[in-house]
């Protein structure tokens, strides 16, 4: 459905997108993760047609996204800004923004009412938006992007600064939109949102995709392993001695101190072997935890821990 090839954009000396390439299928929900300055908003702006002066191509529904303006009728964008009219009601806003797309007026009214229902704003549809809470505004912001039933929906951090309930509601909408066949690209800093919402994840930094796939695939790609933490009444030297001959490609001793040690394992199937060995050597174990790698560990591994401005 969407095929981006070698998209490159720079602001002076700063390279915002560096030969960025990405594919997206129908109904796929892609979470685009990246630290500040990774190029996420630049990518969304270029795809949505508000930023020029770049190189590369993007094919959408088999046509050139950058040349065929009619494709904008198939593209929905939810910007990070609450970009709508505070003075107008939610319904009037939907009718205005929908009016910019080629949606027949009667259908637009029906669609606006449906969306207000979906984002749970029907009861306050006629009230000026300036009276809305932050969460309500975010929901309206999302609804505006869906008015014309787009085939591709781009969301730029749609859950910034809102409460848990509003966030859950917006993520539910994104999932349902994806389930209905719309391809979704969704940028966020909230790793947990991506884990629970997206069918595919792309981690980008310095204008490039560093890795992409499902969470499991990412873990595999970056080579992260489960970590076993063991606490007990043992000396560090005794513990090291006990697991020495287990160490190899599948087990690695990460640290050992008196009473606490940790090991990296290729598979949790190694844990019974380790525990058996410790019992045999009569080392008293009081607690054991298995930490599986998550998106955060993958993300930090790929993008590093240094702060970004």
């Amino acid at each position: 459905m969407l095929e981006i090839k070698n998209l490159t954009k720079s602001y002076g000396d700063v390279l915002a997108l560096d030969r960025f390439s990405l594919d997206l299928k129908k109904g796929e929900v892609l979470g685009l993760l990246g630290p500040n300055g990774a190029g996420k908003t630049t990518l969304i702006s270029i795809l949505s047609g508000t930023l020029g002066d770049f190189t590369g191509t993007a094919s959408f529904l088999g046509r050139d996204l950058f040349a065929d303006r009619s494709l904008k009728n198939r593209l929905g964008v939810v910007p990070q800004d609450m970009a709508f009219y505070d003075e107008l009601s939610a319904m009037d806003n939907l009718l205005f923004w929908g009016g910019l797309y080629d949606v027949p007026r009667a259908e637009l009214k029906k669609r606006a009412a449906e969306l207000l229902e979906l984002v749970e704003l029907s009861a306050r549809a006629r009230e000026p938006v300036k009276n809305f809470s932050g969460g309500m505004k975010r929901r309206l912001n999302t609804a505006i992007g869906l008015l014309h039933r787009p085939d591709l929906l781009l969301l730029d951090e749609p859950t910034v600064g809102i409460d848990v309930q509003a966030k859950v509601s917006i993520l539910d909408i994104i999932r349902s939109v994806g389930a209905a066949g719309t391809a979704v690209v969704f940028t966020t800093h909230q790793l947990a949102e991506v884990e629970t919402t997206c069918s595919r994840i792309a981690i980008m930094d310095r204008g490039r995709v560093l890795a992409q796939g499902t969470l499991e695939e990412l873990v595999r790609i970056v080579g992260e392993r489960d970590v076993v933490e063991i606490a007990g009444e043992f000396a560090a030297a005794a513990f090291s001695e006990a697991v020495r001959d287990l160490a190899g490609a599948r087990v690695e001793l990460l640290s050992a101190a008196d009473g606490l040690a940790s090991l990296a394992v290729a598979d949790t199937a190694e844990v019974p072997r380790i525990m058996d060995r410790l019992f045999r050597r009569q080392l008293a174990v009081t607690d054991m935890k298995i930490k599986t790698p998550n998106l955060e560990t993958v993300f930090l591994k790929l993008t590093g821990r240094s702060l970004r401005d």
Binding site: S45, S48, G49, T50, R69, S70, K72, N73, L75, G76, V77, P79, Q80, D81, M82, A83, F84, Y85, W97, L100, Y101, D102, I144
Partner: peptide, 14 residues
Amino acid sequence: KKGVLARMLFSPLS
């Protein structure tokens, strides 16, 4: 400043 103008360009409006 609010991004309303930019948002309009998401539509087929040039």
